[in-house]
Nucleic acid binder design. Structure first.
Lengths: 180, 180
DNA sequence: TTGTTCTGTCACATCACTGTAGCATTTAGG
DNA sequence: CCTAAATGCTACAGTGATGTGACAGAACAA
């Protein structure tokens, strides 16, 4: 692949991820225009709209998987793993800002989503077992919190580096925002 | 308006809200089918797709406004107001499960959204002033948390009544999920 | 029952988006 | 410089969604 083609591929992917995060129905025309590229060029890189979507989802899952592995969820001390996990997810989310619900509705990537979900579940159980998290909370509550709080940090606190955002997320998760 | 027409109107609104929450691009055909009504009937109640969307947003904002007023955000003790606010928002979110980002992108209801946002902002400042919330957190962090944590409770913890969900949300917000 | 209102159905025009084709032009890279 | 690769542009067919019209039939309300 020629260098300019690779550049365009990259730009198309990034632009599409950004636009689709804001508007899941964004058309190929708009994506191409925003990427300063002809509509035809997008179709030369991606057979169809679906293929473009799949490529974005794959990129996102790749980034998440890297975060999982950097965090060493099964080996590192839970507090350390949690922090590294959040930091990695913040980076992945900022790099590939895809709407969560949108991806959850895609059947093509269901297996991978499930596999990653299971690993996160296992980690949360480990955090409960090792007494980092309380054990008396409803099923799924901690997971939902962790996902959404991390997302808020990634989206809203853009002036914070990922590591600082992770500090805040972890502290908020563990101790809350109450004064007492 | 005849009784059956009113029934249909109600059903169309509810069904549309539910479908659009899951898929913002849901077509009028699908909405009509899911509401057991002909496509033409939807167009008799709502001039256009946009008008239907606007009606849903208005219904949602009405419900949120009721929650605001029931909570008495400027008068009641902050802890009480917070609890009542969350409970009301959980109910409103369940009744009108519209995607937040989708509504945020709509210019027609921008003034109302802004007005409600300002009232929530003022309440959060009051919570900080009266020492319920910590004061050393980044701008917007508490607001983002409050919104999203409440949403997670409304969406994921469907087996909990709104009041119990509010218990959990407030406790989590104030003290976190840490064991120590 | 009877008049009015509402709904279902078939039909139609319009529009936006998708995906494909051919060809001239530009650009990378040996 | 020169070839192969990649792009821009125009055009076209197909599809699905939106919005409207007319009319017969069903459901409500007096």
């Amino acid at each position: 692949m020629r260098a300019d083609a690779a550049r365009n591929l990259e730009k198309i992917l990034s632009t599409a991820a950004r636009l689709l995060a804001a508007d899941p129905g964004a058309s190929m025309v708009r994506i191409a225009a925003e990427a300063d590229v002809d509509r035809r060029t997008v179709y030369r890189q991606f057979e169809s709209r679906e293929a473009l979507l799949a490529a974005i989802y794959t990129a996102r899952y790749d980034a998440v998987e890297i975060a999982f592995e950097n965090a060493r969820l099964t080996e590192a001390p839970v507090a350390v793993a949690l922090h590294r996990y959040v930091e990695g997810i913040v980076e992945a989310t900022r790099r590939w800002p895809v709407a969560f619900d949108q991806m959850a509705a895609d059947p093509a990537t269901a297996v991978r989503r499930r596999e990653l979900g299971d690993r996160l579940d296992a980690f949360i159980r480990r955090c409960v077992d090792e007494e980092l998290f309380r054990a008396d909370l409803p099923d799924g509550w901690i997971e939902g919190l962790l996902r959404q709080v991390t997302k808020v940090a990634a989206d809203d606190l853009t002036h914070l580096e990922a590591a600082q955002a992770a500090d805040l997320v972890v502290e908020t998760l563990l101790r809350g925002v109450g004064r007492s």
